[in-house]
Simulated scan of single mutants.
Amino acid sequence: MTKRGTTRKAAASGPVLSTRDLNRATLERQLLLQRSSLGAKAAVGHLLGLQAQNVKPPYYALAARLDGFGPEELSGLMADREVVRIVSMRSTIHTHTADDCLILRPLVQPARDRELTNFRTGLAGVDLDRLATLARELVEAEPRTMKQLREALIAEWPDADPQSLGIAARCRLPLVQVTPRGLWGRSGQVALTTAEHWLGRPAEPTPAPDATVLRYLAAFGPASVKDMQTWAGLTRLRDAFERLRPQLVTFRDENGVELFDLPDAPRPDADTPAPPRFLPEFDNLLLSHADRTRVVPPEYRGRSWVGNMLYCTFLVDGFLAGVWKLEEGALVIEPFDALTKGRRAEVVEEGERMLATMHPGTSYDIRFGTVIR
């Protein structure tokens, strides 16, 4: 029997972990239960990247997680090509360390190949191997915007759909966004070259997923096979979990779904205090499990977005509790439900800390109001 939003019920053994157990374990792995002393590069590596459709979310994601973080730290790593912006998991842009860019992008290449089947009509008559070769030559000669790349490719295949040609280049090649795009306080249009060219070294051969399974559990566990498949945008990962089973421990969630974990990974008590945290839109905490109830209460599912607009969120007691935004001179906080006076004070205090980290020297009012309109 299959339950929507969870993996199949396995004939699982092991202790049952409650939703709060899973919440606290995940927050600890995500560096959100208590702030970490890690540097930005080490944190990006531990977290297996940060979702980055927009420029600012990775900076806010680290501000919520790290003690002593300043935006210039991540920006400097990007300028020095130690971290990069690239389409990887779930066909979305992530900020990865250079090493992970060259490992994780090959790992998810099967998903990018599958993505291309949605565009076969617009690519009729296009030799995809030749397209990849031509696109590589173009972007390695000089970084190109996607518009420039499409225009060059349509000259070769005038009957093809220009949008599909651009997507094919993005799927077949590991295209990174070159700086100044992504730098804090700077602006720049998206210009692309290959990861190998930007980083000066080749990508890894397509790796077996086993090492990444262990890293995923370290950052997001305890987790099911389907949880990791949701995070990676891949299928057929059960074989890797089964190979690793002898060195893992297993649990069950409250629905009987089998969960895997590293034996020595932290699993704090369910009553461990979880201070408020302000998260950016697209934070991986909310997107990296098939069953998100460990962080998102069922009654709040779908409350943090409207159409294709996803809002910044905040946590109270470890769970999604509302949304926030910065507008002219104010941090506006909208809880999904009433907060006690004590909770409101804690949220304001965390908001003040976030503002001091991300916008030092700028004065903001903090008020509770309406964010979603």
Rank of each mutant, 00 (worst) to 15 (best):
N308L: 14
L244V: 08
E258K: 01
Q247H: 09
L279T: 06
T313E: 15
D291P: 01
W231A: 03
D269Q: 09
L310V: 15
S288D: 07
L286P: 12
P298W: 09
T235Y: 12
S304P: 03
D253P: 07
E242W: 02
R267S: 05
P280K: 02
Y300R: 14
A265T: 01
D227F: 09
N255F: 08
L315I: 14
F319S: 15
A232Q: 10
D253G: 09
E254P: 02
T313Y: 06
G318R: 07
R245C: 04
A223E: 02
D283R: 11
V225F: 04
G233V: 05
P222W: 10
R301T: 13
S224H: 06
G322H: 10
F278V: 13
R292Q: 12
K226D: 11
A265Q: 05
V225T: 12
R245W: 07
L259H: 11
V295H: 03
F314A: 12
Q247F: 02
P275Y: 10
A223K: 02
D227H: 00
P246M: 00
M309F: 14
L310F: 15
D283N: 11
R294S: 06
N308M: 12
E281W: 01
L259G: 14
A321C: 05
C312E: 15
W324N: 04
R303M: 02
E258M: 03
G233K: 01
S224M: 13
G302D: 14
L248D: 12
R245M: 07
A219G: 13
E299M: 07
Y300L: 13
E254Y: 02
G322D: 14
D227A: 03
V249W: 05
P298E: 10
H289S: 07
A321L: 01
G302W: 11
W231N: 02
A290Q: 14
C312L: 11
D261I: 00
A265E: 10
L285N: 02
A270S: 10
D261G: 12
D239F: 00
N308C: 11
G221N: 04
T313P: 08
G318A: 05
L244Y: 09
V306K: 13
R245P: 04
D317G: 09
D271K: 07
D261V: 05
